[in-house]
Simulated scan of single mutants.
Amino acid sequence: MSIARWAADRPLSNHEQIVRTLGLEILTGVYVPGANLPPEPALLSRFGISRTALREVLKTLSAKGLLISKTRVGTRVQDPMHWNYFDADVLAWKVSQGLDETLRRHLVEVRTALEPQGAALAAQRRTAADLAELRRCIAAMTDPGHDQRSFAQADLDFHVAVGTASGNPMMRSFAAVIEVALLASFSLTSPIDSPALQAQVVAAHAAIVDAIEARNAAAAAEAMRAVIQSGFDRA
């Protein structure tokens, strides 16, 4: 199990629960950008915590880009442009509200900017072990017994493997950072209800591996772009 999924499944501490509660209230517009949070005494009374604990909560939310504290102004909600969507909590909270068209488009734009280059690098740097792992991922995606979640996980494992094969640890980390959004997106566009469509999706992913094995960087990048775009188009 990945760190991100383990963190999502384990019980939350009191600090984490309060951070999540306020974080979700910010993302859902209970506290709109530019507005102040309730004054400290109100928050202390609401959550039944110490002033020190509350300040740690606000510090955590500020580190995620959601809040900014200023003397004589108070603690104010930041404009969404400052929110750190590469923070696992912020992204998970956003996805928990539903993967809307805007979020899906933003995700595709970021993926298109990075993943084709990762595939191109994999074509240049892949090892025999990398190819074996990529072929294993393709075989896993071919399994006819998938449900939406398990196919999405197999799809994610493939994209992580491409990042690993790129030899660039930042490429490998990218899929892990946005894991929750990728799983939601892959589940939304899952082809498992149609064996023919599942075979088509698997073949498109296999084309990436074929290009990587052939050390054809341009073809690997183009095949990755096609996979990302077709996934977006299926929803």
Score class of each variant (00 low, 15 high):
Phe151Glu: 06
Phe151Val: 11
Ala152Asp: 05
Ala152His: 02
Asp155Gly: 11
Leu156Cys: 11
Phe158Val: 03
Phe158Leu: 09
His159Gly: 08
His159Ser: 08
His159Arg: 05
Val160Lys: 07
Ala161Lys: 02
Val162Lys: 02
Val162Trp: 07
Val162Glu: 00
Ala165Tyr: 02
Asn168Tyr: 14
Pro169Trp: 13
Met170His: 12
Met170Ser: 08
Met171Asn: 06
Met171Trp: 03
Arg172Asp: 01
Ser173Gly: 15
Phe174Trp: 13
Phe174Cys: 07
Ala175Leu: 01
Ala175Gly: 11
Ala175Pro: 08
Val177Trp: 04
Glu179Thr: 12
Val180Asp: 06
Ala181Glu: 00
Leu182Asn: 10
Leu183Phe: 13
Leu183Gly: 03
Ala184His: 10
Ser185Pro: 00
Ser185Trp: 15
Phe186Lys: 03
Phe186Glu: 05
Phe186Val: 00
Thr189Val: 12
Ile192Tyr: 01
Ser194Gly: 09
Pro195Thr: 04
Ala196Met: 05
Leu197Asn: 11
Gln198Lys: 14
Gln198Ser: 12
Gln198Asp: 01
Gln198Ile: 01
Ala199Phe: 06
Val202Ala: 06
Ala203Asp: 14
Ala204Arg: 15
His205Leu: 02
His205Phe: 06
Ala206Leu: 05
Ala206Lys: 11
Ala207Arg: 15
Ile208Ala: 02
Val209Leu: 01
Val209His: 00
Asp210His: 05
Ala211Met: 03
Glu213Gln: 13
Arg215Ser: 15
Ala217Cys: 07
Ala217Gly: 06
Ala217Gln: 04
Ala218Thr: 12
Ala219Trp: 10
Ala220His: 03
Ala221Ile: 05
Glu222Phe: 01
Ala223Met: 00
Arg225His: 12
Ala226Asn: 11
Ile228Arg: 11
Ile228Ser: 10
Ile228Phe: 13
Ser230His: 11
